[in-house]
C-alpha cells in the first residue's frame, strides 16, 4: 500500500516539477502600479535659482556677478497628475486627473538666500504621480519690492565695479511638464513626501562665461555689458521701462525673451504666457 502511494506521489509530484523546471522563471516581476495611489502625503514646493543665484559667476561678457538678492514673487502654484503627460512644446493646456493648489496667494522669496532651494509651501495631497506644474510670477502688492522679479547685486570687470538693481516687472504664467533633474520628483506615496520645484535659469539673462561664445545660452543671452553702459557713478538702477528706452531694440527683445524663458522645472522647459 505504501509503495503504491510512493508510485503515485512520484508521478504526480515529479512530472509537474519537471515541466515547471523546463520553463524559465521570468514571470516574477508583475506590474504593481496602483498600490501607492491611495491615501495622501505631503508635497513641498521649493523655488530654485540654482548656483547663479547663490554663487559668483561669469557672464558671457566676462563680467563677474555676485547677486545679493533675487526676489521672485510666486502665486497660483498648482501641481497636476496630468494624463496625457503635458508637453510644453506641443500642448496649450494641462489635462489632469488630479489638481492640487500649492500656493494661492502672492509670496515673495529670495532665491539668493542660503545655499539650497527656498521652501515656499507644504501641502497635503492625494498620492500619485505629479508630473505637471503651473505657476505665476506676479507684481507683489506689498513687501520689499513691487516688481515680479528683482535682481540686486554687484558686477565687476577689469577693476570696475557696478552695484545694480534691476526691477524686471513682467508678470508671467508658466505651464510645465515633469521636473527633470538628477533625481525624480513628484512621485507621492501614501504617508510619504515629495518635492516639486520652480526653477529659474538666470544664465538665460546673463549668459554663461564657462560656455562657448557660440553656445545657444550665450547667443540668446543679453549679458551684462549693455546694462553696464547705462551705469552712472558705478551704480545702475533700472526697470523695464528704462531698459526699453536705453537698450537697443535688439538687446531689449533679447532681454525680454530671456526673462520669459527663466521659468523651468529643473531642466524641463515650460510654456510661458504673459499675464
Amino acid at each position: 500500500m505504501v509503495k503504491k502511494e510512493l508510485f503515485v506521489t512520484g508521478l504526480f509530484v515529479g512530472i509537474p516539477l519537471l515541466i515547471a523546471g523546463c520553463d524559465t522563471a521570468t514571470n516574477n516581476e508583475a506590474t504593481n502600479t496602483t498600490d501607492s495611489e491611495t491615501g495622501s502625503g505631503t508635497i513641498s514646493l521649493v523655488a530654485n535659482g540654482e548656483a547663479f543665484a547663490r554663487e559668483e559667476f561669469a557672464t558671457k561678457n566676462d563680467w563677474t556677478i555676485n547677486l545679493d538678492h533675487v526676489y521672485v514673487t510666486l502665486d497660483q502654484v498648482k501641481a497636476y497628475q496630468s494624463d496625457p503627460a503635458f508637453d510644453p512644446d506641443q500642448d496649450q493646456e494641462i489635462t489632469a486627473e488630479q489638481e492640487v493648489t500649492l500656493l494661492n496667494e502672492a509670496k515673495t522669496v529670495d532665491l539668493a538666500k542660503g545655499n539650497k532651494p527656498i521652501k515656499v509651501s507644504e501641502t497635503q495631497a492625494p498620492a500619485g504621480e505629479y508630473n505637471a506644474l503651473a505657476w505665476q510670477i506676479v507684481s507683489p502688492e506689498q513687501g520689499k519690492t513691487d516688481s515680479a522679479m528683482v535682481l540686486e547685486g554687484t558686477a565687476q570687470k577689469d577693476g570696475e565695479s557696478i552695484d545694480f538693481v534691476l526691477n524686471l516687472d513682467q508678470p508671467l504664467s508658466y505651464q510645465c511638464g515633469e521636473y527633470v533633474g538628477d533625481v525624480r520628483k513628484g512621485i507621492l506615496e501614501a504617508d510619504g513626501e515629495t518635492e516639486l520645484e520652480t526653477t529659474f535659469h538666470l544664465d538665460h539673462i546673463f549668459g554663461d562665461g564657462e560656455a562657448e561664445p557660440d553656445d545657444d545660452i550665450n547667443q540668446n543671452a543679453v549679458g551684462f555689458e549693455p546694462m553696464a553702459e547705462l551705469a552712472m557713478n558705478n551704480r545702475l538702477e533700472a526697470d523695464l521701462n528704462t531698459l526699453e528706452q536705453e537698450l537697443s531694440s535688439q538687446e531689449y527683445e533679447r532681454l525680454m525673451g530671456a526673462i520669459k524663458g527663466l521659468g523651468h522645472v529643473g531642466e524641463g522647459h515650460c510654456l510661458e504666457t504673459e499675464i
Binding site: P84, A85, N131, G177, E178, V180, G181, R184, H201, I217, G266, E267, G268, H269
Partner: peptide, 12 residues
C-alpha cells in the same frame, strides 16, 4: 529621461 548640459526632457 534624457539630459545633457542643463537641457532635458521626459517621454512616456
Amino acid at each position: 529621461k534624457v539630459r545633457k548640459a542643463g537641457h532635458g526632457d521626459f517621454i512616456s
